[in-house]
Structures are given as C-alpha cells and as structure tokens.
Amino acid sequence: MKDASTRFPRRALTAAWMGPLAALSLAGCSGPVNNQQGYMPEQPVAFSHAVHAGQYGLDCQYCHVGAEKSRHAGVPSTSVCMNCHTQVKTDSPEIQKVAAAVAENKPLAWVRIHRLPDHAYFNHASHVGAGLDCQTCHGPVQEMVRVEQRERMTMGWCLDCHRDTAAKQVSAPPPSAPRAGELLALSSGAPAPEPLKAPRILQPPTDCSSCHR
C-alpha cells in the first residue's frame, strides 16, 4: 500500500490529463480531424500496384497524368488500362471487367482512399514539381497489392513536413520539361524567358491560405 500511495500523484496527474483529453477527442470527431490512416477498402477491380509499379516499374505518372500539372493526380481513364490490356492478360476476369467497362462506355467507380477534407486544398503539381517522391505521402505503393492510406494525413502531419523542409533549405530539382515560356519562344521566335540564376530553394508555405481558401 505504501508503494501505491507514493505513486498516486503521478497517476493522478496522468489521469487528470486523460479525462479532458478523452472528452476533447470525443468532441473532436465532429471537427475536421479525419484521420483514415490504415484505410484499405476493396476496389471494383483488384488492381495491384505491387505488380504494375513494383514488378514492372511503371512510372506513376504513366497513369496518374495530372500529378505533374494539376491539383489532382487523377485516376487513369479506363482506356489507359486498355493501352496494354488489349494484348496482355486478356483472359483475366479482372481485366475483363475493365474491358467490359470500356465496351459499355461506363466508367469504373474506384473507392477513394487518400482524401483530405473539402476545406483543404492540396496541389499535386506543386509537390511533384518540388521533387517529392510519391511515396513520401502515399507510402510504398509499389509494394501494395491493395492500396491503403499509410500516413496520418492530418494537418499536423502536413505542417511537420512543410516546416522541416523550410528549415533544411532543400532546393527544388530543375524543371524536367522545357518550360512553357521556352516552348512558346521556340515556336514564335519571341525571346525566351530569362533562365533561373540559382536553383529554387523550397519554401513550403505554412500560411493558412495555402491550403484553406
């Protein structure tokens, strides 16, 4: 009993924290905390990223074409699957589902896994342009047979990375494709835009309006 009484204050302290914390996290449900970490729903077609991205090493952007230029990485249109699968593995029942969808001109309804609340704006292009690997946020997708949300994807998680990147003064990779201005210049004969003097040091914003607007 002596032992218990000496330990009591510490436990009481912990307990005192627990109570309000539990209450608040309970209330927090109605708020924007929408952590779906570990979410791994079944998809209409048993598509395996482990096979496509892992085994065959397809580039992510072969299918997710928007990632480089748009807010949305995008899910490939069904016809993209058929680029290969008119020839490859046509006898698989899963592929036949896709082929049927194309034939009926009826899109497949995939279940969305990575999802931010409606009031949070995320731009894939900015992150891909800054040289981030897809895996940084999406986890080792090339190993996933069925995709799951690996990271917390909460506001704190986003901000941690933004703050960390700013602190480390990471520089962005040079733009891979010719810049739009240069393309225009090539075709029209107008002077090309000035080249960048130094590589861009990433300054990931931490302003609220970067994501909430």
Partner: peptide, 17 residues
C-alpha cells in the same frame, strides 16, 4: 456553438493549432 471547445487550448493534431 458546437465548436465552442475550440477556445480551449488543448493538444491537437492540426500542427499545434
């Protein structure tokens, strides 16, 4: 009003909002 508890400083997962 259902968010009135936001006026309390409590640890959270919003980047320490």
């Amino acid at each position: 009003p259902w968010l009135a508890f936001w006026v309390m400083p409590y640890p959270n997962d919003r980047g320490s909002l």
